[in-house]
Structure formats: structure tokens, C-alpha cells
Simulated assay, not measured.
Amino acid sequence: MSQTVKAVIARSKGADVEVVDIVVPAPGPGEAVVQVHSCGVCHTDLHYREGGINDEFPFLLGHEAAGVVESVGEGVTDVEPGDFVILNWRAVCGQCRACLKGKPQYCFDTHNATQKMTLADTGEELTPALGIGAFAEKTLVAAGQCTKVDGEADAAAVGLLGCGVMAGFGAAVNTGEITRGESIAVIGCGGVGNAAIAGAKVAGATTIIAVDRDQRKLEIAKGFGATHTVDASSEDTVERIRELTGGFGADVVVEAVGLPETYEQAFYARDLAGRVVLVGVPTPDKEVTLPMIEIFGRGGALKSSWYGDCLPSRDFPMLVDLYRQGRFDLDAFVTERIGLGDIESAFDKMHGGEVLRSVVVL
């Protein structure tokens, strides 16, 4: 049976978000209805509202979420009603060329729910953000988007693994392959950048350099494990990173901003045979130009990190276990807990750099 619940939508480009009634269908084959307990306010939601993803309005926003499975459709065996889950936007298909090569973390044909949630008053179909749409009391997803984890964990904290924290942690650990004894520099110390710093600490990096233009963010980065900070507003980022790494540059540089100038800094701040990881999301108009001789001469790798190159079924339970053991402080990412009606204000705080994450708690 379908249900009517409260949810937050973006009706048109640039318009303030609205709390409205939506209709959530009963789950069909391969689908699940999840009662949402928490959902982080991510930059991607703002990109949707601003029309930066596509123009398939109205959008049902929210995707960094945790909750409890309420019901499942035919053929669902991996989760069942009552399971505490983190929602993910990489529900691997098992059949695409990436999956068949044994690299499901790059799945090119991830699953979403087949049915559409709709506006209660008009019946208009909604486009859920990243196939999830979790600024809602309940949401309909593909069952593969539900990753079961320890039910004792705080939903507001572990739900952030659904996007930003996983993207940053994975950029350092999965994509950058940072390991014990190595050095890493992270350019951009928002939620994603700080997750990369925290991941590097967990992995055993000994020199962890945080780079930002905001002193507040640099102080926060120390709490996540940064051993050194670079104020990019007053220091030469490349030269300072080299100074802190014996004159060589870092083994890994994570660019968590998405701008040509910071990517160029990352390129020149790495050691020979080092790895540059782009996890900051650039806009389509951004371009970077580098001398080919420098690309050749420096060796190593220039990588992009998709969702932290994560495999949710592998990584989410592991990171929740680290959190429960006190080795990965997910609580520190939760700046404030808010309601569904506070999301527009949370966007403003995000713009002003006042929060790592505002988290909607239902």
C-alpha cells in the first residue's frame, strides 16, 4: 500500500526548497521502503537545487542517509524489515563490464528503484537525488542501495558515510592508497577533505598536511589528524608542502576543492611517482593545462575518485566498526542536528563555511 509522508523538494531552479506531502509506493520487485532516521545536508543537494546536475525538476532532495527497512518487494533477500541500513548510490548490478572485471566499486550501471515517488497534490513524478531522495520521512530505493550495519550506531553520524565522508575517506585510502609511513597533503578542508585526513590517520600516514584558506577549518583539521597546516591565503602551498616533506613533495595529494588552480597545486606538490587524487567536483566549464613533459617526468598517477572508489557492502560495515571502536570519529562531522524545515538555512551555513555537516534528524 502506498503512503503519504512529508518530504523536501526543489520545485524549480534556484527556488527555496519546500516541505510538501509526497506519495511513496509500496515496494515492487527488488525495491525497499526505508523509514529515514537521519540525512546529511550535502553540497550535491544544493547543486540539484541550482540545476547544476540536470533539469529534471522537481527534485526530491537528500541522499546521505540512514534508517530502518520498513518493507521489501519480491525477490529481495539481502535486507529485511527491521534492518538498520545506510543508503548508498552505488547499488552494484553485477553484470556490467566493470563488475564482470571484478571491479564492482566502479559499477557503470547501478540500480535505482523502478517506481517513482510523486507529489501528493498533483501526482507529478519526483526525481530523487542520486536515486535516493531521503529528506523525507520514508523513501523508496532499490534494495541494493541499502547496506546493513550495526544497529547500535548513531544514525546521524553513520548516515554521513552515504556520501561525503565515504568520498573523502576513500579518496585517501582506496584511490590514493595511502599507507603507513607515507605523507599526504589534503587541499580543501571541508567535510570531504577532513574525511580524507581522518582516513589517512587510520591508515597510518605519518605526515598529514591540511591546506585551506580558512583558519577555522585548519584548526578543525588538526582534530581529525592533521600533523601540519598550510594557510593558502598567506603561504605558497606547493613550497610549503615540499618544506614539510623534506623538499620532495607528498606521496599523495588529495584535491578536495575542484578548481584548476588547486589541482595544479596538487600536481606540483606531490613527490616523484606520487599520486594526485581529484575528489573535489569541478563545474563543467573548468579546465586545467599542464606541460606534458611534467606529466611524463613526474611519473606516478593522476586519479579521479568516484564516491571514494568504495564498495558499500565492504566499506560501510568496516567504517561503522571503526567508529564503534573509537578509531574513526564520525561524531565530529555532525555540526548540528536540524529538522526538515531547516534545510534552506543549512544551505546558507554551508555557503558560509559555518558547518561540516548539518544533519536532518527525523
Rank of each mutant, 00 (worst) to 15 (best):
E239V: 01
G223K: 10
L302S: 09
K217I: 09
Q265K: 08
F248G: 04
V211I: 14
R275Y: 00
Y268E: 13
V68A: 02
A185Y: 11
E56S: 15
V76K: 01
D150M: 05
R180V: 07
D321N: 10
C310Y: 00
R49G: 02
E137L: 06
V238S: 04
I86K: 02
R11A: 14
D16Y: 05
T44C: 07
G170Y: 00
A91Y: 02
T139K: 01
A156M: 04
R180A: 14
G297N: 12
Q95N: 12
G190Q: 07
P25F: 03
T110I: 12
G223L: 07
F248T: 09
G176T: 03
I343E: 04
D16Q: 14
S38H: 08
N194D: 14
E31Q: 11
R180E: 13
V34E: 05
E125S: 14
S305G: 12
I9N: 01
A203H: 00
V186G: 02
G247N: 12
C99G: 10
G133T: 01
N194K: 08
A221W: 09
P58Y: 06
G75S: 10
I86D: 06
L356S: 03
S183G: 13
C96F: 09
G164P: 08
G67T: 06
G102E: 12
E56T: 11
D45N: 13
A7D: 13
A250I: 02
T245V: 13
T283G: 14
V41N: 08
P291D: 14
A26K: 12
G28S: 07
Q105V: 03
T139N: 11
S233F: 15
I220S: 13
L319N: 00
G14T: 03
E31D: 06
E18R: 05
Q115M: 05
V334E: 05
G62W: 13
V202W: 00
R49L: 13
T262E: 08
V334I: 07
D348W: 01
T283H: 13
Y268S: 09
V68H: 02
V281C: 08
L61P: 04
Y263F: 15
L100A: 13
C163A: 13
V252F: 01
E137Y: 07
F333G: 06
T147Q: 10
G176S: 10
